Amino acid sequence: MSMQGAGFENRAAAWVQQRGWQVLLRNFRCKVGEIDIIALDGECLVFIEVRSRGNPRFAGAAASVDRRKQRRLLGAAACFLRAEPACRHRPCRFDVIAFEPRQSAADREPLWIRSAFTA
């Protein structure tokens, strides 16, 4: 992960915590993929993908979470739930926190897409 990518993940984690969510884990990795942030929003387990784009000529950060990436996130979430039986009973959702080029300044709010996709 690039230093800039880590910075955006740090900003996303802080943004999540400011909303009262509990960050359980960051950068969960397994053989099928990675999840940037796993958090609790009340009773809901939230798998969060953090995306950023620095160049406005490319597709937006949120749009970069394509079907292939979604499948990898779903697989990684399944790995996490197998590894953490205590979390299996919780409702789950997949959110995207995106930092678009115009939102690159440190004081800008990210674009939050709640329930960006479903299993």
Rank of each mutant, 00 (worst) to 15 (best):
E109T: 12
I113P: 01
F99E: 02
I48H: 05
T118P: 04
N55H: 07
I113T: 07
F28T: 09
V46Q: 00
A106I: 13
D41A: 05
R102S: 14
D36R: 00
R72Y: 07
A105P: 03
A63S: 10
L40P: 07
E9T: 06
I97H: 02
A98C: 08
C44K: 08
R72E: 14
R19C: 10
L81T: 06
D107N: 10
G20T: 06
R88Q: 10
D36Q: 03
S64M: 05
L24Y: 02
G5Y: 06
R93D: 01
A106K: 12
E100H: 00
A105R: 14
F99N: 06
C92R: 10
V50S: 00
R72M: 08
L25M: 14
R53V: 06
A63D: 11
F8Y: 13
C44E: 14
W112T: 07
D107R: 09
R82G: 13
A105F: 11
E100T: 01
A39N: 05
W15L: 13
A77P: 01
L73K: 10
G20S: 10
R88A: 07
W112L: 13
A63W: 02
V50D: 00
P91Q: 06
R57K: 13
P56R: 06
L81V: 02
L73I: 15
P110M: 01
I37Y: 00
A119G: 12
E34V: 04
A77K: 10
V96W: 00
C92K: 09
V50Q: 01
L111E: 11
D66G: 08
A119I: 08
N55D: 15
M1T: 12
A39S: 10
E9L: 08
R71A: 15
G60I: 02
M3N: 13
Q4M: 11
R71L: 07
L25P: 03
G75K: 05
